[in-house]
Amino acid sequence: MNIQFSIYRYHPDKSQSPYMQRFELANSKSDLMLLDALLLLKEKEESLTFRRSCGEGVCGSDAMNINGRNGLPCITPISELTQPIELRPLPGLEVIRDLVVDMRLFYQQYRIAKPYLIRQDPDPEIEYKQSPKQREKLDGLYECILCACCSTACPSFWWNPDKFLGPAALLQSYRFLADSRDQATEERLAELNHPYKVFRCHTIMNCMDVCPKNLNPSKAISKIKQLMLEHAI
């Protein structure tokens, strides 16, 4: 099987505008994942740059735009893609080189969401206790791998990446609002009640459409709004 690619190339030191380059991988197996094919391609074209690590959809470092849709090449079978496979960097963030983007804005928003337990009470001697029911509330929230597929598919994040938290960070915001062990609900909600942080979300739902872990940030965001409303009344 021959695999055709059209890949976004950009090298800042060569002061050349970005361009799309054609590649072909001849006589390859047909049951490859896209990342495997990219690694084979890199053996031939060493300058081709992309991030990857675990190769099985757990680390989230290889996120890119595949045929116009954000996803993880490590869990995308070649057989499901129309050719030539068009690969571009995640949209909305600055490109460092080829398929590698600058994730600083994304992490900055993640930091603003305070993704850790905040306690007023002293820490328990042994462990935090949580009933199975309380733990269940975190399902669909804790699984996020921070690949940035959702935030970089979100038009609201494209427009205001410096002020709007974006779906990934907001999913984490809700993950800690929903956690029975966290004691900063009021403070978290007060910080989020802001013209940009949450309320730039217009329920476009690209986030849940592209999430490679099948999570639903849209739903988490509406739960945040609901919680805010309950606390305001």
Binding site: N193, H194, P195, V198, F199, K225, M228, L229
Partner: peptide, 9 residues
């Protein structure tokens, strides 16, 4: 009016 209030109204 901003944030939650604007959204609610």
């Amino acid at each position: 009016m901003q944030g939650l209030n604007a959204w609610l109204w």
